[in-house]
């Protein structure tokens, strides 16, 4: 459990971090380190340089601006878990945070790190999709903003270029009801399947439902089929049953020693149904 030699550079501003990224080949960004450090210690990855961005204070913090919740990429899961602002503005994020790892992990692991790592079993990608988060990415030529729906490109891969850094995440802050249900892998605690759902309803009629699913497939996705079947319809148990039964249609689910594809597919359907039931009371 000893990493291969690497150089360590601590950045104190986003500019400095970007500069370091540009001037070093084969560099990796170190934030909370909860995915990177195990891989380093197992020598599964051997970058020449680690650029530590955990000391950049501007990447950390939660604020509300123009009705949106703005979360710095270096904000820890624990900070989100304990934020009253998040609890009020985004019940879905507040539901996800305490279900990540354990308290120690949540104190170190970061929101942005988890999104940028894009682990197929990560929790945040499902939520980011469900709230249609906007991800702000800084590079040599300024910043660009990418919607979650375009951010994740594959297993462990995103649109972030090697010389770019995810700096902040913007989330709608209207307090839309939301919930995250997670089936934990008994060994790792990662999501076998995780379902992040937001829903609005008024006088028995569904407004908008959004559903992000993680764990089931190499990359998290929006269960659009289910959303379309629900939006604007009158709430009924039958409708939710019917809609959720299609949640896994066409999916090519992951398969491992814990959960074959058929089981993940079952979990997607069951958990989508249960999350909808909790939010829509049916």
């Amino acid at each position: 459990m000893h990493p291969a030699p690497f150089a360590y550079k601590a950045a104190h501003s986003v500019e400095e971090a970007l500069q370091l990224l540009r001037s070093h080949e084969d560099a990796k960004i170190l934030a909370g380190g909860h995915s990177l450090i195990p891989a380093l210690k197992l020598r599964l990855t051997q970058p020449a340089v680690l650029i530590d961005i955990s000391k950049i204070s501007s990447l950390r913090g939660i604020r509300r601006e123009n009705g949106k919740l703005i979360i710095g990429s270096g904000t820890t899961h624990r900070e989100i878990e304990q934020s009253h602002l998040v609890a009020e503005a985004s019940p879905l994020l507040a539901s996800v945070a305490p279900q990540i790892g354990d308290v120690q992990v949540r104190h170190r692991g970061t929101f942005g790190g988890s999104l940028a790592h894009a682990d197929p079993a990560g929790d945040w990608p499902a939520a980011a999709l469900a709230v249609d988060a906007e991800l702000v990415i800084a590079g040599a030529h300024g910043t660009r903003t990418v919607h979650a729906s375009e951010f994740f490109t594959g297993m462990l891969t995103t649109v972030i270029e090697p010389d770019e850094i995810l700096t902040e995440i913007k989330v709608p802050g209207e307090g839309t009801p939301g919930i995250y249900l997670k089936h934990r892998n008994a060994a790792s605690g990662y999501a076998t399947v995780g379902v992040a759902v937001t829903a609005t309803h008024d006088h028995g009629r569904i407004g908008t439902v959004t559903i992000g699913v993680t764990g089931a497939t190499p990359v998290a996705f929006r269960a659009s089929i289910v959303e379309h079947a629900l939006n604007g319809h009158a709430v009924s148990a039958h409708l939710l049953d019917e809609a959720a039964s299609h949640a896994a249609d066409g999916l090519e689910c992951l398969s491992d020693i814990h959960a074959p594809a058929a089981y993940r597919s079952q979990l997607v359907k069951v958990m989508v149904r249960r999350a909808l039931g909790k939010l829509l009371h049916a």
Binding site: L42, R43, L44, P120, A121, M155, P218, L254, S255, D256
Partner: peptide, 14 residues
């Protein structure tokens, strides 16, 4: 090998 023993879940999709 080690990659499979530790990260088998990543290998087929990769």
């Amino acid at each position: 090998g080690p990659v499979f023993s530790i990260g088998s879940r990543f290998v087929p999709p990769a």
